[in-house]
């Protein structure tokens, strides 16, 4: 067995170890390359920034705990921007596993930081089942779908919800999602009710979303942890996404290295394999 055959047949656990080192090492030895802003992230930031202060804005927590590393920094950065601008924030989720708990945890923490009052400055609507019906139903009446907020307080008892009856009263919808729900915010809410929608999505979903940005169905886009890091930079709030960028860089470089080595090994051993077959 020659060198390249040995390399090609390397135990997968060595690769796992290399990946672990590539992620852990940069967190201990901080290098901090500057995060450049893409036009799509800038567009989303500008869209929110250009809204008048005290506008009503929807922020969705359409993500599972599985993708918190990518999505939560987006929600945190967005809330920093919205509360700083004294916007009235209505949060909701269409994700049954964890969505309401995550929304509650993140909004309460940020609201405390900015001294915001629940029911006046922000409301967490929580979860309702069957997202297609939820999104469509809120077009005529939010209260018909959400008679009460996440904690069970009736919407009629919340001052903020007195002036938010349906999408007509919402200036912008900021969707943070890790699943196909974003498609319905675009095809049902934006297309039928005309409310502008901007999105922060996981990296896996981002390439598809470019098509909606180009068609002006989405106003701005954040893709994955890098997108979250861009937004953190835009709102001037260094969070977990910016802190994770060094590790992201090292891990990408390792994977590129592995692809190159894997291919060299493949071509180096191809002759041997052909010889053995012939």
């Amino acid at each position: 067995m020659n060198f390249w055959e040995k390399v090609s047949g390397m135990d997968r656990r060595w690769i796992y170890l290399l990946v672990a080192i590539s992620v852990i090492f940069p967190m201990l030895v901080v290098i901090k390359f500057p995060v450049q802003i893409t036009p799509e992230a800038r567009q989303l930031f500008d869209a929110v920034e250009s809204l008048p202060d005290s506008s009503v804005i929807f922020l969705t927590f359409d993500y599972y705990p599985s993708t918190l590393a990518e999505t939560e920094p987006m929600s945190v950065a967005a809330l920093n921007q919205m509360f700083r601008k004294n916007m009235k924030v209505v949060t909701m989720t269409t994700v049954p596993l964890g969505g309401p708990s995550i929304a509650e945890r993140v909004t309460r923490k940020l609201a405390e930081k900015y001294g915001k009052v629940y029911g006046v400055d922000y409301v967490n609507l929580g979860y309702k089942a069957n997202y297609v019906a939820v999104l469509k139903g809120m077009g005529s009446s939010i209260e018909a779908i959400y008679p009460a907020d996440n904690t069970g307080t009736m919407l009629k008892d919340l001052p903020l919800m007195q002036k938010v009856k349906n999408y007509n009263d919402v200036k912008f919808i900021y969707v943070v999602a890790d699943n196909g729900i974003i498609d319905y915010w675009i095809s049902i809410v934006n297309a039928q009710y005309g409310t502008p929608v901007g999105a922060g999505v996981t990296a896996v979903m981002a390439p598809k979303m470019y098509s909606f940005v180009e068609a002006k169905q989405l106003t701005g886009l954040l893709g994955g942890m890098k997108g979250a890091a861009e937004y953190e930079r835009l709102v001037n709030h260094e969070g977990n996404a910016i802190r994770g960028m060094d590790a992201q860089s090292m891990a990408h470089l390792l994977i590129i290295f592995l692809v190159v080595i894997g291919n060299i090994g493949f071509f180096a051993t191809r002759k041997l394999r052909r010889g053995a077959q012939g």
Binding site: L28, A69, E70, A203, G224, N240, G244, A251, H252, I255
Partner: peptide
């Protein structure tokens, strides 16, 4: 992008552990 997403999720858990 998929590679980026998967690595990000690992980073989240490593940040918690470290």
């Amino acid at each position: 992008y998929t590679v980026m997403g998967r690595i990000s999720l690992l980073i989240g858990q490593v940040q918690f552990l470290l």
